[in-house]
Write a protein that binds this DNA or RNA. Structure first.
Lengths: 143, 143
DNA sequence: TGATTTTAATTAATATATTAATTACTAATA
DNA sequence: TATTAGTAATTAATATATTAATTAAAATCA
């Protein structure tokens, strides 16, 4: 374990590599990719939100999101709709099929979140969250 | 900030999004991608290591690494070489050009690591590292 | 030894990431 | 109001990620 292995970026990447397979296994059961899940997860709370809002909320960049939405609408889960008040804006809304997925997927994922949270001690968990918050607010973000 | 935004995966992704641009700006000055940097960073310490070792050390999957090595060797920074003792193994070694990059890039990146580490309090930093370690060892890894 | 099983690297197919450039539209301003 | 500047979405080009399949070379074992 040297300087590089203990750098924050590598620690974050490794942690994601350890944590994500379990979630991806859940998504796969519903033929969803990780990014598609994230988009749906946001739409279930904010149906009809604009593409750029969706990009910010999902941590998927605009250009990537265009493709994700393409495939989600190809699969009949969402629909694109131009905003009437601002013709530049594209609003993404759920189809019936997309809406129905929520109650089947969310419980499984929430349960996985809970298992993950319980896999380490409560103090370690809270300190981890605090540390991540600190890094995010300390860095010179552009938002 | 709901359940989803506070989930560990999204917290990790957001933290990376906040942290990485500064590093990418450094890599760009040397026409390196993030993954190319990681490969070089490992080779500078373990020149000639096997592709799969490199995959594990860089957190880049085997299939992805094949392309990264293709482009690094296209750019004259590394070379592929079959192992003599085991013909299945491909060893990756630095060229003179690849070796020379080290002393120009590493100081800048190490300085960025230090700035990052100092951007939050020492206790928060140590707790963050401890939390990430806890998650990595707690989860049922396959290694 | 010869068949079987593993392993390292690669290929294939599809989905995303990243940065820069474009397009269509809106807002701001002289 | 004609021009200019700014914004939302998309396209383009290139690089990676992910999973499954393939190939070639060990290693195992009847």
């Amino acid at each position: 374990m040297n300087q590089f292995d203990r750098s924050l970026p590598m620690m974050l990447y490794r942690t994601l590599d350890v944590v994500m397979p379990e979630f991806r296994a859940i998504f796969k059961r519903f033929r969803l990719t990780e990014q598609q899940w994230r988009v749906l997860r946001v739409l279930w709370e904010r149906d009809g939100c604009a593409l750029l809002e969706l990009a910010e909320a999902t941590c998927v960049s605009g250009p990537s999101l265009v493709g994700v939405i393409d495939r989600l609408s190809r699969d009949g889960l969402v629909r694109r709709r131009r905003s009437d008040t601002d013709r530049r804006v594209v609003r993404i809304s759920l189809t019936r099929k997309g809406r129905q997925l929520e109650k089947r997927v969310v419980p499984l994922v929430d349960e996985a979140y809970r298992r993950l949270e319980r896999s380490i001690s409560r103090p370690d968990w809270l300190a981890l969250m605090k540390g991540l918050d600190a890094v995010m607010t300390a860095s010179p973000q552009e938002q």
